[in-house]
Simulated assay, not measured.
Amino acid sequence: MASAKNQNSPASARRAKLEEARRKERARERRSRIITISAAVAVVAALVAGGGYLMSAADEQDKAEEQAKTSPVTGERSWDKLERNHVEKPVDYPMNPPVGGDHSPVWMNCDADVYTEAIPKENAVHSLEHGAVWVTYNEKAKGADVDALAERVSKTPYSLMSPVADQKDPLVLSAWGKQVTVKSATDARVGQFFTKYVQGAQTPEPGAACSGGIAK
């Protein structure tokens, strides 16, 4: 049986202190493992939740685009049975700006092209045949709207923009056989028109070039 003297010896005290230090170290390691595991679980949960959110957002975007493509554009005007002959002379179109009909053999470049001067309508109609959206404006259009629409066109392949001084309304969007007048660049129909008709189902020659034509 150990004596009280041995139990209180310096060696016993050191062992007790060492054991206490080891106990605290094990406790710290255990807490660290718990924290690490908890953090990992939280990260995984966040990634799963975030991934689910992103997938949901992407699904919603797809649904919105599909709805824009299938829903009619409010106030839109349509023309059917448009001629598509190539001609070398000016064409007297029944609508202004024209949305189709006989046209020049050469298209106007429509690869996100913004023209600040009037362009030949016969060439622009050929661009519509290739699936382009043509944004036009007259002097009554507000500068801010013209700038905003020009920015959209400059970022959108298969679109072009130019002034048409003698059109009735300040802002008009045209595609082959389709046309709508909008009040401003923020009109929701602008985005819908682009989504629906840039290379849309109305395009007589989908995939045809929008570069390599006339650049003014």
Rank of each mutant, 00 (worst) to 15 (best):
S3D: 13
K5A: 01
Q7S: 14
N8G: 00
S9F: 02
S9L: 00
A11N: 13
A11G: 02
K17P: 03
L18Q: 14
E20C: 05
E20K: 08
A21R: 02
K24P: 03
E25R: 05
R28L: 13
R33C: 09
I34M: 12
I34T: 12
I35L: 10
I35W: 11
S38D: 12
S38K: 05
V43G: 11
G50L: 11
G52S: 09
G52K: 05
Y53L: 06
M55Y: 12
A57L: 09
E60W: 02
Q61I: 05
E65Y: 07
E66D: 14
Q67N: 10
A68I: 05
T74N: 15
E76L: 08
S78T: 15
D80Y: 06
K81V: 03
E83T: 12
E83V: 04
E83Y: 04
V87M: 07
K89Y: 15
P90C: 01
P90I: 10
V91R: 09
D92T: 13
D92N: 11
Y93G: 14
N96W: 09
N96Q: 10
G100L: 00
H103K: 06
V106S: 10
W107Y: 09
W107T: 05
N109E: 13
C110E: 00
Y115M: 08
A118Y: 04
P120N: 03
K121R: 09
K121G: 14
E122V: 04
N123P: 01
A124W: 00
E129H: 06
H130N: 14
G131T: 01
V133P: 00
V135W: 08
V135P: 12
N138A: 03
N138D: 02
A141H: 09
A141R: 05
G143S: 14
A148L: 00
R152N: 14
R152I: 15
S154V: 03
K155Y: 01
T156L: 07
Y158T: 08
S159L: 02
M161N: 14
M161T: 12
S162P: 06
V164Y: 08
A165M: 06
D166Q: 11
D166F: 05
Q167I: 08
K168C: 06
L171H: 12
L173I: 02
A175G: 03
K178A: 13
Q179N: 12
V180N: 13
V180I: 10
S184Q: 12
A185Y: 10
A185I: 10
T186N: 13
V190L: 07
V190D: 04
V190W: 02
G191F: 08
Q192S: 01
Q192W: 03
F194L: 08
A201Y: 10
A201P: 07
A201W: 06
A208N: 14
A208V: 06
S211T: 11
S211K: 11
G212V: 06
G213I: 04
A215K: 10
K216S: 15
